[in-house]
Design a protein around this nucleic acid. Structure first.
Lengths: 224, 224
DNA sequence: GCGTATCGTTGAACATGTTCAAAAAGCCTC
DNA sequence: GAGGCTTTTTGAACATGTTCAACGATACGC
């Protein structure tokens, strides 16, 4: 688990800082917590926090990465639990929600940094490529052997599309102020039905022209 | 034009601050420009900038609102120029792009604040309701009397949907690093074709179930 | 064990967005 | 034009994310 040549003690300090930070974030909120608080909570000097984390948001990113790592099993279960694509995707997304439930508001901090594509923490940037591709892989697995057959031309795009869809839902969930985020759940159900329905009918011969246009959209996104 | 009981001189100072700020933002970028710079450029003390603008991002918002006001005519022209929905929507979006061309990067500052729904500058918040509804109105006008007929159930939703679509494109345009934002233009063309095609076939009887599911999605977004 | 390079830690200094109490300038009434 | 109210302006103070030079500890080659 130790990444570079750092000692076990350092690794422990790193974790202590993160854990303390998360507690403070949860108790008072991200903005209300100062980096001096974070350092004090971990019993180190202010500068130490910056030795281990590049920025305040980087703490959130570390939290994100940690939970992501811890959820492999839950992801696998979500996929193993059913052959229905709808249920699988729903499962994957619900795992994400469950993980972040305690820190729902915290992710806005990541988003704020993330909308700027120059920011290293952007979900579309180079630095997050690995997590992103890993996550997309889960959607590939969800599709594989599921109850919907995907037109050949779409197959290479669908996992990434579902990942984008999931990102959109997570954003909706974060800003959802309805009680218990019911609205997000409603949207999740309704959109999943629509998506699966679209996939189902997309193979019909009648849908040829539509398929062609949809593919054109997908290709337009590719770099040239 | 003067909004409250302020003098013409104050109004002029307000504009001088904004104009100077925009020049600095354009020349050095948003982050590289300090509020002290902005104030100095306008020949006032630092605090004065905060008398007229709530925050640094508020300057960008003022710029946004200003260009939005100035573009009514261009919007009207875009709609008058054709009966084709595709061309009209394209026209509306191109007006936006043209307005912001000089300050493309600047809008990321607004987005950063905007992803947080608690922020007053959020495009989905209460404070921006007026501009938002005004903008949505333009899409309503674009649909009215155009070459596509919209199923009755969708009619009340479509303007807002197109506005959301336009927001997505603007975001894509902002972060688009391809030369001259060609990729955005490709995506714009391809998605517009798809949208219009979808609208065209949505009236077919065969599409009944799909229409129903799409409507369910729209309703899921509504508050209960 | 000793010297040295790397790792870890410190806390003050810095940069900059923002606030605020106080003063100045306008304006209005008498 | 004196007094008082509102608007505008000021610049220092504040808060806080971040940097940095210096110092201490640790491991490693010899």
């Amino acid at each position: 688990m130790t990444e570079r040549g750092q000692t076990a003690k350092a690794e422990e300090t790193r974790n202590r800082i993160l854990d303390g930070a998360l507690r403070l974030f949860r108790e008072r909120g991200f903005e209300q917590t100062t980096m001096r608080d974070v350092a004090a909570e971990a019993g180190v000097a202010t500068g130490a926090a910056y030795y281990y984390y590049r920025s305040k948001q980087d703490l959130v990113m570390a939290f994100y990465l940690r939970t992501d790592e811890q959820s492999r099993e839950a992801f696998a279960n979500a996929i193993a639990s059913s052959k229905e694509l709808k249920k699988r995707v729903r499962g994957l997304i619900e795992v994400k929600f469950a993980q972040f439930a305690e820190h729902r508001g915290l992710l806005t901090a990541l988003l704020k940094a993330g909308v700027d594509p120059r920011d290293p923490l952007s979900p579309f940037g180079e630095e997050t490529r690995q997590v992103r591709e890993d996550n997309i892989e889960w959607y590939a697995r969800a599709i594989e052997g599921s109850d919907v057959s995907v037109p050949k031309e779409f197959a290479p795009h669908l996992p990434r599309l579902l990942w984008m869809y999931h990102m959109g839902l997570v954003y909706h969930w974060i800003i959802d102020t309805s009680p218990e985020q019911r609205r997000t759940m409603r949207v999740l159900d309704a959109t999943l039905e629509l998506i699966v329905q679209l996939l189902r009918i997309s193979s019909l011969p009648l849908m040829g022209p539509l398929r062609k246009r949809a593919l054109k959209v997908l290709r337009a996104f590719e770099d040239d």
